[in-house]
């Protein structure tokens, strides 16, 4: 537990991409949302675009706080409504690269209708859905992605509902690009976000993340590092475009792989309502 001191710094090279005056952020030790924010700003830097060309929109919840930490035009909206808010910006200013960062409960439960319709339209957005399998901000309630059998404050005997498998849902709804990585796969995650920014159309990246304070503790997963170890041991790179059953996640069955990968990347005409002056 000791060693020699590294060089002590007071700022990080990426601080200019962040609202560094708000750091340290509010997220718990071992939570992966900060890692997703990090991957986002790293991709933003790699995009080569001016910060003023980027916008970040979030909904409500722990992941919904992401927008508040990035130094671009950023909007922390109401629960579930990040996607239509982002649509408004993306349609009105098609030159902007609008990224939505929000959670599984926000995007897939209360905002689920907006999710499938944004994918159906192929709205030119990059959507990073941080999936921590529960409602973290409100104290660990079951959500639309909670694996069957997992324990939550609103499912003390275990979740009975079948979860959404978000990459499968969004692919079926018509997205152009679909990936799933975990916050352990930082390079792949960052690269997927960057491809989403560079691609026109609805690009969806699910980022599996530990939630040690709520999901992890309730399900005996241990701390954030322990949940990361689950990902390290069980994640397998998928071939092609797996379906619901293959992508379904069971955190208790250690024999089942958790499939990750870039599942879909196709060219589809991005959404842009007719709006040119035809006179």
């Amino acid at each position: 537990m000791s060693g020699s001191a590294p060089i002590i710094a007071s700022t990080h090279p990426n601080d200019g991409l962040l609202r560094a005056d708000r750091f340290p952020h509010i997220l718990c030790p071992g939570c992966g949302i900060g890692t997703v924010i990090h991957c986002y700003v790293d991709a933003m830097a790699a995009s080569g675009l001016a910060l003023s060309d980027h916008a970040c929109v979030s909904g409500i919840g722990c992941s919904g706080r992401a927008a508040g930490y990035v130094n671009v035009d950023s909007y922390h909206t109401t629960h579930g409504r990040a996607l239509p808010f982002a649509l408004g910006i993306a349609v009105y200013k098609p030159g902007m690269r609008v990224t939505v960062i929000s959670g599984d409960g926000d995007l897939a439960a209360i905002g689920g209708n907006h999710l499938i319709h944004a994918a159906r339209r192929n709205v030119d957005l990059t959507v990073i859905c941080i999936n921590n399998f529960n409602y973290g901000m409100t104290g660990g309630q079951a959500g639309p992605t909670s694996p069957r059998g997992s324990v939550a404050s609103t499912a003390p005997e275990g979740v009975h509902d079948r979860p959404f498998v978000l990459p499968d849902l969004v692919r079926a709804a018509g997205a152009s690009m679909v990936s799933r990585w975990t916050v352990l796969h930082v390079r792949q995650l960052r690269d997927a976000i960057l491809r989403g920014m560079q691609k026109r159309g609805f690009c969806f990246i699910e980022a599996l993340s530990p939630c040690p304070t709520n999901f992890g503790r309730a399900n005996d997963l241990g701390d954030g590092m322990a949940e990361m170890e689950v990902y390290r041991e069980r994640c397998e790179l998928a071939d092609g475009t797996p379906g619901y059953d293959a992508l379904d996640i069971d955190l208790t069955d250690h024999t089942r792989p958790i499939l990750v990968g870039d599942f879909l990347d196709i060219e589809r005409t991005p959404y842009q309502p007719v709006g040119e002056h035809t006179a």
Partner: peptide, 19 residues
């Protein structure tokens, strides 16, 4: 490489040490 750390930001998640 040389390692730089901002100690006051750290929350001891252990990701850097572990990986």
């Amino acid at each position: 490489g040389t390692v730089h750390v901002i100690p006051e930001r750290c929350k001891e998640c252990g990701f850097c040490v572990g990986y």
